[in-house]
Design a protein around this nucleic acid. Sequence first.
DNA 1: AAACTGGGCCTTTTT
DNA 2: GGCCCAGTTT
Length: 859
Amino acid sequence: MDESMDSAPHLISTCVAFICNTSQSAMDALLEGLNDAQKSAVTSPANVVQVLAPPGSGKTKTLTARVAYHVNHERLQPWNIIVCTFTIKAAREMKERIKGFVGEKLEAKLILGTFHSVARRFLSRYGQEIGIDKNFGIADTSDSTAILKRIVARHQYTVEPGHARSRISKLKAKGVSADDFRATAKNVNDNEFAMVYSSYQEHLKASNLLDYDDLLVRCVDLLRKSPSCVSTIQAVLIDEYQDTNNIQYELMQLLAQSTRRITIVGDPDQSIYSFRSAEIKNLHRMRTDYPESVVINLENNYRSSGCILNSAMAVIEQDESRPQKPLIATHGVGEPPTLRHLVSATGEAKWIIEEIKRTKTLAAGLLSYDDYAVLIRSSHLSAQIERALGQEGIPYRMVAGTKFFDRAEIKILLDYLRVVSQPEHKHNDAVARVINVPSRKVGDATVKALLEEAEVKKVTLWKLLLDVARGRRKPESKVSAQAQKGIEQFVNVILTSRERLHPAEGENCDLLDLIYHVLKKISFESYLKQAHKDNWQDRWANVEELVNQAAQMTTAFANGEDILDDALPIVQGVEQREDTGADILSKFLANVTLSSVADQEGGEVAQVTISTIHAAKGLEWPVVFMPALYDGSIPHSRADDHDEERRLLYVGMTRAQGLLYLSCPMKQSGQEKTKLSRFISDKKIQKLFSERGPDLAFKRSTIPDLARILRRPCPADTDLKTAHSLLERLEDDKYPATREEMDGEDPTWGASWGDKFNSSGLSGDGPKQSFKRRKVEGSNSISSETVSTTMRTVSGFSTAVTTMSSVKTGFTSALDLGNLQSMQKEAERIRSKEARDEAREGKDCQATSDGARCHHKLL
DNA sequence: AAACTGGGCCTTTTT
DNA sequence: GGCCCAGTTT
């Protein structure tokens, strides 16, 4: 690129000199491997650049390279560059990639994070300009709901608290304040809601809290009032721009108000956050507001096989309102994706595990568990998958299930810390949540009464408790002797903890010491042992992880490091607030609400990933499964924007590099029949899929093709051959694959194994079941004689049940294919068929979701 | 009378 | 995991 010549060094400083010496090669490295469109996006001299980047087109690569270009070639100081993402994970990923370009030191100086965390930084530094206390806390969704619940209960309003919360959130996303809303209220309902909204705001204010939306709204207020806070900002970059809502758009404008230099990357087809008020319209709005905008389209997909891309395109193109645009595969066609029907959700999970094992084995080292992802629409769908993986001993990680900081044990601890942090503020909810944890015999009734009393008397709950504990005031609420005692204990915990918050002069506040104190005072470990007998170890490990984080922060703080990325450019005329030692706790708490613990990559153990589709955005895996694709799940029954649901499916499908599996159980975990998702019901679309998993055993090109797509060396022929001998089944033929097969074989299809065994309808089959039980209990040492006896009986029994049919249809299907090799394999299989059927059935029963219950019934 | 315990029900997506 | 309800303990 010739432009690189323009940027000859002209400033002398050690730092700059260093960069300039390496400038030419850095430039080369920066642009290496970029295509023309990407290069022009990275190096565009235009002030406002919109990069439209479909899946797998190198979006992150382009954005990170442009950040590096700003730093290395345009000589922008990293602390004058803001990069906003939507998810914590995306921010983390971006950081890593930028480090590779500009080095750790410069990267660390960038203002990079989620919109919310960037806003938090500005508010925490300059909040005093608009009257925000520096130690504001952040109310998460459950805090907000709790506040609204109480407001609604007290005034006996008719709105549902959850509904009110989302309505308030939507209004804030549009920049409509409580006062604005009241002014436009049209009817009784609106009036009531206006009351709720403003009470909610008052409550937040009194508690020194900002909710997620407030972070954005108030930051907009701040930057409007004091533009000088961002006077040094020279470039703003936004990732996943299609997900911006109105308030974020305004924030973007304000952050960039000094130089109007903005780069955004996004893809309207991947807009999946309209429930968070994302406005696709912002793309056009930006072109209007910034007529100087340059639009660059990326069109090459470097991620997926042609077949996968094709099927994903076919899905998204059903949306006729959507403008057509090209997306060109750069890989070979690969294997057609699979669209599979399974009998039940349990069966679906087992089939997935079967396919993971089959493909991993047959790929002979090409694939590890790390390469597999199961993407689900709703987090509760993970249960079956987790259970099945667990049963097979396959390691997995669950992304974005219950987040670390949402875990009950962590929340309890954090609530204690919140109360310790600012009891003088009206942190009533936190107080109420932990006053009886562990049990101090201060029951719900007492707490509720005290809360009401505190509200009426306009004092904080903490103040009231303090008075009660010290016997200064007889509360109007009835407080039993034991409750009185409990309150005294609680107050004691908090007061002794607070002593540690304000250490002697010259000493840093030791967060660790404080946490240990709280843990000891409330005997948290024994509490967990007693309250969660089954998994207290895991929970205690989580607590240790939190302690760990606090430890890291304490050391960093002691070393004077900028632990929370709080450094903002020094701006003249606007006073930045200094941190005092005791502020560390409130910072820790605020940060915790906006962060997540990094996935333990561990490295040593390869793990299958389970993730929601939402959380999977921006990521890719060699093999992707998308289960539960039925109407009601996707499109979700509560979703009203079906186009967005379709985009969601599209986003999921385009995560796959080499192999993609879509599947649909014919029954939900309940008993309702399912209907295949409307997005993949079209005949033309179904033609793009195969009914069974790909042939990795007999089609010779499959594995080499896969290796090429993954840019990995292809396993040796001998290894591939050896792999065959490791498997009983070389093909995806363990379960029936089509409705016809399932219907034909068994009119009672739909009653899955688990369903059958758990249903009381089987209670009469005593003798056979006892065999089954012996098989289940019998370890490997069970004699072959016993096995065969057991097997015959159970086989006879199970012909009545669906799974048996899978074996048969497996045969016929293989024969129909006329595949000689597979016929030979089948012959082999027939020889040991019965034994394996038996083995499988024993396992099936045991592996049933309610294994234990199944077991009992069989007794 | 208040607190606790166990069982049955449901569960969109994220900062 | 959260919520509600019924039955039991303190």
